[in-house]
Design a protein around this nucleic acid. Structure first.
Lengths: 159, 159
DNA sequence: CTGATTAGTTGTATAATACAACTAATGTAT
DNA sequence: ATACATTAGTTGTATTATACAACTAATCAG
């Protein structure tokens, strides 16, 4: 791996990250919900039923953040939130009928997005791309750990 | 591309997007700056000199957002902001010495991150991954509303 | 010269987020 | 079984990131 290859690769990843952000944003906007709600919705839909704590874990967010996101979704009628009678600490979060509708809709849009993308890529590359992303994603998962060196900047006297 | 393949692919992309977000965050935190500052810093460093307007275009952000981000960076001594005497509407944004230091440092960290990732991937897959990501990124670019990109950038020496 | 365009700033609003302090429920150990 | 610990979730508070609209100042075009 040569340095300039890494740089080019970083550039591609950065661009892709930006594109993925735009995708979420426009998809959510299309359905009249926020990006955070969109992500939560997809996860609740996928699980069928999930606790707030688990949802926060899956999304990598604090429970306080999720609590408020879900509050908003309850208010606009996307999900239902009820206490689990077996252990009254847990919430059971599920999609309402309307939530289900939006879920299906967003899923369709995302699927279409990727279908469109692969439509403009030669078919004989598809398997390779699939494998590559899988390798990359797996490698990343095992490499993410925030070990900091806290030296560089703290507070610079404003000139 | 079969529906369930697309779903799995989406899942991988989502995970990667999350990992990339974490990466930016921990890198920025390590250097005592915010994520927005980190991205701006990388872009200013890459260009050497850039106007606020062009920087906003490259990053896909509103100039008001960038104006405040740069304000913060000036305050902590990362960049310098001076009026272009040839056209006094333009700012010329450049790295300070300290900004240069942090720029080099962040670049090193990002490079290392990707080097580490590729280190755990069989070498004979590297070229394939490069090609795949390139294909994917290009396909995405042409599928995303090409609202804010290259055509707005007129005058900067690179690197 | 006047009106239009352009770069940047400021006012305001909102989304997304974390951390800390809290409540309520449940588990555990003496 | 009582007291302490742990867990799920909420609320208070603060910060970051962001956009849009209204504005100023500079420059361009007719």
């Amino acid at each position: 791996m040569k340095p300039d290859e890494i740089r080019r690769f970083r550039e591609v990843m950065r661009q892709m990250q930006r594109n993925l952000g735009l995708l979420s944003k426009s998809d959510a906007a299309c359905c009249g919900i926020t990006v955070a709600q969109c992500h939560a919705l997809l996860e609740v839909g996928r699980s069928g039923e999930i606790t707030l704590f688990n949802l926060a874990s899956v999304l990598g967010l604090d429970t306080s953040t999720l609590s408020r996101t879900i509050e908003g979704m309850v208010r606009i009628g996307l999900v239902e939130r009820k206490v689990n009678p077996r252990d009254r600490r847990y919430l059971s979060i599920t999609l309402t009928e309307r939530g289900e509708q939006v879920y299906v809709d967003i899923n369709r849009t995302f699927d279409q997005f990727y279908a469109d993308i692969f439509a403009v890529i030669p078919e004989d590359k598809h398997a390779q791309i699939f494998e590559s992303l899988h390798l990359l994603s797996t490698a990343m998962d095992s490499n993410i750990d925030p070990n900091c060196r806290e030296e560089l900047i703290n507070e610079q006297p404003a000139k």
